[in-house]
Design a protein around this nucleic acid. Structure first.
Lengths: 112, 112
DNA sequence: GATAAATATTACTTGACAGGAATATTCCTT
DNA sequence: AAGGAATATTCCTGTCAAGTAATATTTATC
């Protein structure tokens, strides 16, 4: 899993931007207005989101319209999949680990 | 969605720790060994993960065994759910947005 | 081509965080 | 109770990212 996806979403304003774009593409000015952000800050956050591959730009006339990209979200979904058994199978390795410790102890203290 | 989940995962070593714990609970020393980390750093990262609710501790004798908590991952999964239609429905609001712009233009320049 | 709107970039300051070393704490063992 | 293993905390330092203000760039309009 790519760390940049998480670090991009780890900033509150950027998370807001992503959730805003969930409802559809928007130009920079609109995003800044709706989230009460300054224009430069908005552009910078969008830059980070863009470099992380979370959004893409499409120039239309004067404006630059940003929209979400599906890929990183799908990747995140796939990554989560690998954790799913953790709660679905109520799979608690704690006992297993303890048993393993026991075995090593019974083997005696001669390490290696 | 909670930002702290993302910021906790935004650090490479912490992401490694989480992925390591995916296979089962481990004590601090084991984590440090397997990831080639110093013990204090490991403890500090585990602290962050713990405060973000991603892991929980269970003291066993001398050791403190860390394991993943399901909840934040489930929340992340639910959050992703709200994006799923974005790629499943191939739902591209760009046209809609442009049409909307057109309408406003045709309405004349009298704002408000 | 000049002007203005929309957006991007830069420079500066400040605060948060990671690594490293040293130290403190907790708990087991004898 | 003493010693030692396992873990947590503190202090220090350097780096990076965010906010702000100012400026540059692009593109449409006239």
């Amino acid at each position: 899993m790519n760390v940049s996806t998480f670090s991009a979403l780890a900033e509150p304003n950027r998370l807001d931007i992503v959730e805003l774009l969930r409802d559809g593409p928007l130009p920079v000015g609109e995003i800044a207005d709706r989230l009460q952000l300054g224009q430069p800050q908005t552009s910078k956050h969008l830059r980070v989101l863009n470099e992380a591959g979370l959004v893409e730009v499409q120039p239309v006339a004067n404006k630059r319209i940003y929209k979400l990209r599906a890929q990183p979200f799908q990747e995140l979904d796939d990554w989560l999949e690998t954790f799913r058994r953790m709660w679905e199978e109520k799979f608690d390795n704690l006992e297993a680990y303890l048993r393993q410790l026991q075995e090593q102890d019974h083997r005696g203290g001669d390490k290696e």
